[in-house]
Amino acid sequence: MIELRNVHKSFGPKDVLRGVDLSVGKGRSMVIIGGSGTGKSVTLKCILGLVTPDQGSITVDGAPVASVRSAKARETFLARFGMLFQGGALFDSLPVWQNVAFRLLRGQLKRPKAEARDIAIEKLRRVGLGAETADLFPAELSGGMQKRVGLARAIAAEPEIIFFDEPTTGLDPIMAGVINELIREIVVEMGATAVTITHDMTSVRAIADDVAMLHAGKIRWTGPVAEMDAASDPYLTQFITGSAEGPIETLR
């Protein structure tokens, strides 16, 4: 479904990705783990075409991402994706329901306002928010609620592929558990392909079918989540256990 082959990306003198190979099967939930600054977000942005790789190929259903050039083709391509951003990235000039229904109010998926609002309220209910939140502005919501609205926005247009960028960062453990559960349920009931990036191991165990570990710009280990604990890779083991001792350099 999603295939990355030998993807390289540098920003100035900094090599972030140094040959990432990764495949995510259709309908699978892949979780990419790795320390801060290892290029997890850049990998997602490369798949979406927000960042152009210096080298290598990325294909979605066999079609190279780089070949999607015209504005119309881009719109069709991006309509297949939903993304939950780390900080929510809600548009603070728009009320909650217009954030959720953003894609349904303009462009190819445009529909009547009343219908878009109904869908938005239904999606808000799906993530555990009442209809009364629909007319609030993002600044009036708590962090956990903003994440939920972001989640509702990501699934509003029923995408085939959903990306979650650190869905639990900055939330208390209970709220993190709720978000993990929501993600799992939604991915299963929509039958969507999901790619999540996180460094929260609780999240990994709750969400993942497959796990890939990114370290130093390359995929260090990948496999089903059930095999993760038994894997012999010392980098992976150190990350899972959160040990300060091991091959991953720590600044102290």
Binding site: E75, L78, F85, G87, A89, L90, F91
Partner: peptide, 11 residues
Amino acid sequence: EQIDALVTLST
């Protein structure tokens, strides 16, 4: 990241 969000929402 609201600009990135706009792009992913095909705008």
